[in-house]
Simulated scan of single mutants.
Amino acid sequence: MRWLAGALVTLFLLSACNQPAPADVGPSPAATLANPATSTAGAPTPSSSPGGKVTGSDPAGKVELAGVRPQSVQIPAIGVRSALMSLKLDKSGELERPKEFARAGWYDGGPVPGATGPAVIAGHVDSKTGPAVFWRLRDLQPGDEVRVELSDKSTVKFRVAQVKAYPKRKFPTAAVYGPTPIPTLRLITCGGDWEREGGYRDNIVVYAELVS
């Protein structure tokens, strides 16, 4: 049985979006990670991956929560509970894709969730065998809760503010990765139509704000 492809929303420009469509499932919304790359004008750098290249990240949030790292993410509204791996940049300056389809990743060059600035968590939408960790990310609604457990055993809670879908080539890098005066969270995956040559067309970005 084939999965229906849907129009989706994302967060990071993702490098995993170019993977082949899962066998026997048709063009479903594959998850790939978006990259916090910017040009000097703040627009996303054109790239074959959805992430672009990162140019100089120095988040205040790394200082505020020095030594603390996110351990897991929970999104009750869509049934997500995942340990978090660390995501870095590859040699080309693009964000690594998570090595496991059932596990999300935190961009460790950015703020820790709960510190000032935009923390970024990305995950795959599907795999060759079925849905992946962020398969239902597009279904989130404003007001839904996202919880991130930290290595100091504390839990920070966020509320979804909006869910947006962006064509990869028009990814709003400044809006997603630019500094914010308060702690914020971005969740990212792939979405939209799947194209044989370019992979999934869009990124889904979920914007969330810290619950005080």
Score class of each variant (00 low, 15 high):
W135R: 13
V148P: 06
L137C: 03
G93K: 10
S127I: 05
A102M: 10
D126R: 10
V133H: 05
D108V: 01
E145Q: 14
Q71S: 11
P111D: 10
F158S: 07
V120P: 11
M85W: 07
P98T: 08
G61I: 00
S57I: 14
P76E: 12
A102V: 11
H124D: 11
P98Q: 05
Q71N: 08
F158G: 07
P76M: 12
R81L: 10
F101Y: 13
A161R: 15
E149K: 08
W106V: 04
P142K: 04
T129N: 15
P113N: 02
V156H: 12
A122Y: 04
A83N: 06
V133R: 04
E145G: 08
F134C: 02
T129F: 15
V112R: 02
E145A: 14
K91R: 13
V54Q: 12
S154H: 08
G110S: 11
P76H: 06
A161L: 12
S127Q: 08
I78R: 02
T155G: 06
S151Y: 00
A119L: 02
A132G: 14
A161P: 05
K99D: 06
E96H: 11
L84M: 01
S151L: 04
W106M: 08
Q74T: 14
A60G: 14
E145I: 15
G117D: 06
V80K: 01
S82V: 04
K153H: 09
L150G: 08
A115C: 03
P59C: 15
P118W: 01
V73P: 05
E149H: 03
D126W: 10
T116I: 13
P131W: 03
K99I: 09
M85R: 11
S57V: 14
T129C: 11
A165H: 08
D139V: 07
D108L: 03
L140Q: 01
E145D: 13
P118Q: 04
G117E: 01
P98D: 04
L87N: 00
A165V: 14
L87S: 03
G123L: 00
P98H: 07
V63W: 03
A119N: 02
P70V: 08
T116K: 02
R81I: 09
I75Y: 03
Y166K: 13
I78A: 04
R147D: 12
S82C: 05
P131T: 12
E96Q: 14
T116F: 02
I121K: 03
L150I: 07
H124F: 02
L95D: 05
V63H: 05
L137Y: 01
S86H: 08
K128N: 15
V133P: 05
V156C: 13
H124K: 02
P113I: 05
V68K: 11
V160H: 01
L87W: 02
R136V: 10
S57L: 15
Q162N: 12
P76F: 10
Q141E: 13
A161V: 14
G56N: 15
G114F: 04
V125W: 09
G93F: 07
L140V: 00
A77C: 09
V54C: 10
V163M: 09
